[in-house]
């Protein structure tokens, strides 16, 4: 970690880390500690006094059907976004790795959605799926499918999953393509000589060799779907209709910022904090180790 040849200086290194450390302490660690503290407080009805209640806020969450619903919604949402994003990213990258014509054109265009903000992606799809003006809604109505994400919870969920995954496909595509290009040609040639067709080569050679990338992307996509999709939800469904897309991050915001139930919102924050910590630990412990072709 430290260079063998290095400097010694009584103040300079502290000055160099000071800005980063100041921001970290003031805007990250202190608020996180505050969240922990607030999660054990209850405010009285008039907001005049607070009472220390240990883990009561957490216990109440467990009995709260709204919260349990939000966990379920989050699970469906994150798993779908991750699966759809990784699946399509891998599929497109495999195809892009094969072709020679237009290769760079495909690449440039497929990468661009990464630049689109999650909220903007949400609005684009909201427009396409909007029952009065959306072209996709129009086509579906033409096919006799009743479609209205503004009132139907399932439709709303499908819409936000597509909007969230659409943006993330680019990210996965970049990593899979880089992964595919780093696989030695000789391995694939050897498999081809042994008589394996393209399909078989993919499942027995290429896919196992991509497993470190896939695993890394799974963690990153889960983090994305858990947290960054706040914007997608806020800009499109606001958690509705009737809480059908009220993912956990959105609920923290709504309960705390709109509902002003600080104790409960803080407790929910802390639950989320544990989820990120768990995901980060998984990422650093296992991704570093490079899950490779486990037979």
């Amino acid at each position: 970690m430290l260079k063998r040849v290095h400097f010694k200086h009584p103040v300079l290194p502290y000055l160099l880390v000071a800005p980063q450390l100041a921001v970290t302490l003031i805007f990250f660690i202190w608020p996180a500690a505050q969240a922990l503290w607030q999660s054990m407080l209850v405010q009285d009805a008039f907001g005049l006094g607070t009472q220390f209640v240990w883990f009561q806020n957490y216990l109440e969450l467990w009995g709260d059907p709204q919260y349990l619903n939000s966990i379920k919604v989050t699970a469906i949402f994150t798993i779908s976004v991750t699966a759809l994003g990784i699946g399509s990213g891998l599929f497109l990258a495999t195809m892009a790795d094969r072709v020679i014509r237009f290769a760079s054109g495909y690449r440039t265009l497929l990468i661009t959605p990464y630049a689109v903000a999650p909220a903007v992606a949400g609005v684009l799809w909201l427009f396409l799926f909007n029952p009065t003006v959306g072209i996709l809604a129009y086509l579906m109505q033409g096919m006799g499918i009743a479609w209205n994400p503004l009132v139907n919870g399932e439709d709303a969920m499908i819409m936000v999953i597509i909007a969230a995954a659409w943006k993330q496909v680019s990210y996965n595509f970049v990593f899979f393509l880089a992964g595919l290009q780093s696989i030695p040609r000789s391995l694939i040639e050897a498999a081809a000589i042994d008589g394996a067709g393209p399909f078989r080569r993919f499942w027995t050679v290429i896919f196992p060799l991509l497993s470190p990338t896939t695993f890394f992307l799974m963690v990153v996509n889960l983090v994305y779907a858990f947290f960054e999709t706040f914007a997608t939800i806020h800009a499109t469904t606001s958690g509705g209709p009737s809480n059908a897309t009220n993912i956990m991050v959105y609920k923290v915001y709504k309960d705390g910022f709109v509902g002003l139930d600080l104790g409960s919102s803080a407790a929910q924050s802390v639950v989320l904090m544990f989820i990120v910590i768990a995901l980060t630990v998984v990422q650093f412990r296992y991704v570093e180790r490079r899950v490779e072709y486990g037979t």
Partner: peptide, 25 residues
């Protein structure tokens, strides 16, 4: 210690400390 403090920020996105961070600001 400093290195680890910086590392910890990875685990604390704004989304998990919305209200206290707003209060600090």
């Amino acid at each position: 210690l400093f290195f680890w403090l910086i590392f910890v920020t990875l685990m604390l996105p704004v989304e998990v400390r919305i209200i206290p961070t707003f209060e600090v600001a």
